[in-house]
Simulated assay, not measured.
Amino acid sequence: MLSNKLIFCVSVSLAVLVVILLATLSPLPHRKPPSKPWLALSLYIQQPLTATVPNTHTVAPQDAGALIFHRVLTKGPKNTSRVIGKAQGFIIPVEQFAHSGFNIIYLTFDTHEYSGSVSVQAKNSGRGQKDELSVVGGTGSFAFVRGIAVLTQKDDRDTDLVVPYHIRLHLKYPNRSRTLPAS
């Protein structure tokens, strides 16, 4: 009986100690959320250098064709620009899936300034040289953001250069000064 009480007390004490250590030693995000409610970023999604890329797959029958992609996200337009993250997504470009909730692009950042991701809903994308997409959330430095993502690609058919997509993010952080009413 005494040993059971002793084991219980030691277990509770260790659990409390672990919680306190985790709370004090856990890493903090790279950057605090900005004090301004808006943030504007200009980035580039690099295209593969060849037409066939092992990390781009067409899934499903030809008439449905889903595009799953993984691209590098850079600070500048050149493929030698500083890498700041990655762009990954799942797009079903067929008309009956144009309004699908599955058409999402995830922009993941891993820099000293930003750590986290932004989720962009790609409804009605790919119809022209400029697409305005909805930012539907984020994590880390971008927790709960909303806004727009303007995706453009310069038409450069005269050259054989691979042109990256330019993405301008206009992000709005939630109002953190509001308090929730007590129930």
Score class of each variant (00 low, 15 high):
S3E: 14
N4V: 10
K5H: 12
K5Y: 15
L6D: 06
V10T: 13
V10S: 12
V10M: 14
V16Q: 07
V16S: 07
V16G: 12
V19K: 10
A23G: 08
A23C: 04
L25P: 08
S26M: 13
P27F: 00
P29K: 14
H30G: 04
K32G: 06
P33N: 06
S35L: 14
P37Y: 05
P37C: 08
W38N: 15
W38K: 15
W38P: 10
A40M: 00
A40K: 09
L41H: 04
S42P: 03
Y44T: 00
Q46L: 01
Q47S: 10
P48K: 00
L49R: 02
L49T: 12
L49S: 05
T50P: 04
T52N: 05
T52Q: 07
T52D: 13
V53E: 13
V53Q: 13
H57K: 15
H57M: 14
P61V: 09
Q62H: 09
D63W: 10
D63E: 10
A64N: 07
G65N: 09
G65S: 12
A66L: 15
L67E: 09
F69W: 10
R71H: 14
V72F: 11
K75M: 12
K75G: 02
K75A: 08
N79Q: 01
S81V: 08
V83L: 03
G85V: 00
K86E: 07
K86V: 09
K86P: 06
Q88K: 13
G89S: 02
I91S: 07
I91A: 04
I92Q: 10
I92S: 09
E95A: 03
E95N: 02
A98I: 12
S100R: 04
F102R: 08
Y106A: 15
Y106P: 04
F109P: 08
D110A: 07
T111E: 10
H112A: 13
H112G: 11
H112P: 11
E113P: 11
Y114Q: 10
Y114T: 11
S115D: 14
S115Y: 04
S119G: 06
V120A: 07
A122G: 01
K123H: 13
G126L: 08
G126M: 07
R127W: 09
Q129N: 14
Q129F: 11
K130C: 14
D131E: 04
E132R: 02
E132T: 15
S134Y: 04
V135W: 04
V136T: 07
G137D: 05
G138H: 03
T139S: 14
G140C: 01
F142L: 03
F142Y: 04
A143Y: 04
A143C: 08
V145W: 01
V145N: 05
R146I: 02
R146H: 05
I148T: 15
I148W: 07
A149H: 01
V150N: 03
T152H: 06
Q153F: 05
R157D: 03
T159S: 06
L161G: 01
V162E: 01
H166A: 02
H166R: 00
I167H: 07
I167Q: 14
R168V: 05
R168Q: 14
L169P: 02
H170I: 03
L171Y: 00
N175M: 02
S177M: 09
S177P: 03
L180K: 14
L180V: 11
L180F: 12
S183H: 00
S183P: 05
